[in-house]
Simulated assay, not measured.
Amino acid sequence: MSLLFTIFALVFVTQLIAWIGQSVLLELVYALYLRIFHSATAARQRKLKSDILTLKAELLRTSAQDQFAKWAKLRRSVDKGLADLEKLNGEISSRKNGFSLRFKSVIWVLTTGLQFVVGWWYRKSAVFYLPPGWLGPFGWWLSLPFAPAGSVSVGVWQMACKRVLKVGERVVKELSAARVAEAEPTETAKEKEPPVESAS
């Protein structure tokens, strides 16, 4: 029975990642990674942005004609700050690209790769046995490719779990869409009602 739940858990985690979205997970994990391992860089970036905004606000308040020296100095400071920020953003971006590649590799290994390994390792094992004659002459295909006759193989169980989760996802989406559709007509009907004219 543990094989049955292990395979279901692997398929469920894979589908959960697909539902949430790998890019959303990447952004969340990368933000956490930055806070833990590169907090000084993130703080420096925030400080640079804040300083640039302050300098830009001061630059806008300074007249280029009346206070040219001050305006030119502020302009050079803003340009230098922008150049530093661009360089820092480039470093953070290249670091994020490397992190993204490692993150996607780990996600693939923990989901798809692990499913392949489990499927190959237990290829001759039965996940569970069906009652004799339950599906008649068609029961043999559930044990494909290498499981004992009369059983459900790992590959078939993985496909069944994935199919059930996908059907469940579709049902939930349809139910939520139906709820939204039920709520909308009452609101739009009120908006479309013609104004009631009072009889005089």
Rank of each mutant, 00 (worst) to 15 (best):
S2C: 04
L3N: 01
T6V: 10
A9D: 15
F12Y: 15
T14Y: 14
T14G: 15
L16N: 05
L16E: 06
A18S: 14
W19F: 15
W19K: 13
G21D: 11
G21F: 05
S23I: 09
V24T: 15
V24H: 14
L26H: 02
L26P: 01
E27G: 02
L28C: 06
Y33G: 01
L34Q: 10
L34M: 05
R35G: 08
I36C: 01
F37E: 01
H38E: 07
T41A: 04
A42V: 11
A42Q: 14
Q45D: 13
Q45L: 13
K49Q: 15
L53W: 07
T54S: 07
D66H: 06
D66M: 07
Q67H: 10
F68I: 05
A72H: 12
K73N: 10
L74T: 00
L74V: 04
R76D: 13
R76G: 04
S77Y: 13
S77L: 15
V78R: 08
K80Q: 13
L82S: 12
N89V: 04
S94C: 06
R95Y: 03
R95M: 12
K96N: 01
L101Y: 03
V106R: 11
I107S: 07
T111E: 06
G113H: 03
L114Y: 10
V117I: 15
V118E: 06
V118F: 13
G119A: 05
G119F: 00
A126L: 08
A126Y: 01
V127C: 03
P131I: 13
L142D: 00
F146L: 08
A149D: 07
V152R: 00
S153M: 02
V156E: 08
M159R: 15
C161Q: 07
C161G: 02
R163H: 09
K166W: 12
G168I: 08
R170N: 11
V172K: 08
S176L: 09
A177E: 08
A178D: 02
V180R: 07
A181V: 05
E182G: 01
E184Q: 11
P185Y: 15
P185I: 14
T186K: 02
T188D: 06
A189K: 11
A189S: 04
E191Q: 11
K192Y: 14
E193Y: 06
E193P: 00
P194Y: 09
P195V: 14
P195N: 11
V196M: 00
E197G: 03
E197W: 08
S198M: 14
A199D: 15
S200A: 15
